[in-house]
Computed example of a mutant assay.
Amino acid sequence: MSHTAHIPSHRKPRRSASKLALRAGVAGGVLSTIAVAGAAGPANAEPVTETIEMPTLGALDAELASAVSASAEASQQEALDLSLRAQEEAAHKKAAQEAKKAKDEADRKAEAERAEKAREEARERASRTAERTTLSASASSDSSGSRSYSADTQVASGSAAAIVAFARAQVGDAYVSGGTGPNSWDCSGLVQASYRQAGIDLPRVSSSQSSMGTSVSLSNLQPGDILYWGSRSGSYHVAIYVGGGMYVGAQNPSTGVVERSLDWDTPSGAVRIL
């Protein structure tokens, strides 16, 4: 064994032959490419002097910022439009709901008023029937117990004629509670207006009108007499006797002002004011 075998060498290790050949081949390829490119060009080619200006980074940033801003504004406007449409639709829906609610309430009130009016008419008819039954004994009757009424054929004259003519002229007008004309009446309003034609001012309500003048029997009536239903001081209905067993009165909402026979709705009594 050599005495120097254990001493480490300070020289760099040699590269392998394969690595050296690879590097030489790459370098040769590059040089060949450059040579071919030079040979392919014209011998007298001039060097390129034109400069191509590339957009600067600042210009690109400005354009990008402008595009982003425009897109943001468009998105914001679209969102605003959608919000306005939603608000309009909500307002229309709310208005429609409120209108329907108001209509339903009006219909309900109208139905309640119609029902109350029907009940009032029924009570009035029942009251009249009860009064007629209770006070039938006070009506005039002959010896056999049957009623007899004046079948006079006298023609009304003077004040009575004016009263009768006015009352008959209102036949066909509507009945309205509290009505005093000219086209709608209640019972005492018609009697009051008729007597006003003769210059006589009567009280407004039926019970006060039937308390006026002198009481007369139904068998001794004269045109212009006031007929009443109920007691004389507490009558609930009045009308005007027009002669021939007939009277004119504002009966009820169903009939309005009518001319009827005394037998159609027999009065309880009569008073004479003329």
Score class of each variant (00 low, 15 high):
residue 176 V to C: 01
residue 262 L to S: 04
residue 177 S to P: 12
residue 219 S to L: 07
residue 195 Y to D: 06
residue 170 Q to F: 00
residue 218 L to M: 08
residue 222 Q to L: 13
residue 229 W to F: 15
residue 237 H to G: 02
residue 186 D to E: 10
residue 260 R to K: 14
residue 246 M to C: 04
residue 214 T to A: 01
residue 231 S to Y: 09
residue 201 D to N: 15
residue 235 S to I: 02
residue 172 G to M: 11
residue 188 S to P: 00
residue 187 C to F: 00
residue 201 D to P: 05
residue 168 R to M: 13
residue 210 S to T: 07
residue 166 F to V: 07
residue 182 P to H: 01
residue 206 S to G: 13
residue 194 S to G: 08
residue 249 G to T: 11
residue 236 Y to H: 15
residue 218 L to Q: 00
residue 238 V to M: 00
residue 253 P to W: 13
residue 252 N to M: 09
residue 173 D to M: 14
residue 166 F to N: 00
residue 182 P to Q: 00
residue 225 D to C: 02
residue 254 S to K: 11
residue 258 V to R: 15
residue 229 W to A: 04
residue 162 A to C: 07
residue 225 D to A: 08
residue 188 S to N: 09
residue 198 A to W: 11
residue 185 W to T: 04
residue 262 L to E: 04
residue 196 R to D: 14
residue 190 L to G: 10
residue 229 W to I: 04
residue 244 G to A: 02
residue 237 H to N: 07
residue 259 E to V: 15
residue 187 C to W: 04
residue 251 Q to K: 14
residue 188 S to I: 08
residue 229 W to E: 00
residue 204 R to N: 02
residue 193 A to I: 04
residue 229 W to V: 11
residue 170 Q to R: 12
residue 188 S to A: 03
residue 184 S to R: 05
residue 237 H to L: 06
residue 207 S to C: 02
residue 167 A to N: 06
residue 253 P to A: 10
residue 234 G to S: 15
residue 210 S to A: 14
residue 213 G to A: 00
residue 232 R to N: 01
residue 251 Q to D: 14
residue 257 V to L: 01
residue 238 V to S: 08
residue 239 A to N: 02
residue 198 A to C: 05
residue 222 Q to M: 11
residue 213 G to F: 05
residue 252 N to F: 11
residue 205 V to K: 07
residue 169 A to S: 15
residue 247 Y to A: 07
residue 219 S to N: 09
residue 176 V to H: 02
residue 170 Q to G: 01
residue 214 T to I: 01
residue 223 P to H: 04
residue 243 G to I: 07
residue 263 D to P: 11
residue 247 Y to F: 08
residue 245 G to A: 01
residue 165 A to D: 13
residue 184 S to G: 13
residue 253 P to Q: 13
residue 248 V to I: 11
residue 188 S to C: 06
residue 211 S to F: 12
residue 240 I to N: 05
residue 242 V to M: 10
residue 225 D to I: 00
residue 179 G to K: 03
residue 240 I to G: 10
residue 194 S to L: 01
residue 164 V to G: 12
residue 264 W to A: 15
residue 225 D to Q: 01
residue 176 V to Q: 10
residue 265 D to G: 12
residue 234 G to Q: 12
residue 211 S to N: 04
residue 239 A to I: 11
residue 182 P to K: 00
residue 176 V to F: 09
residue 203 P to W: 05
residue 199 G to M: 00
residue 230 G to E: 01
residue 249 G to K: 14
residue 195 Y to M: 13
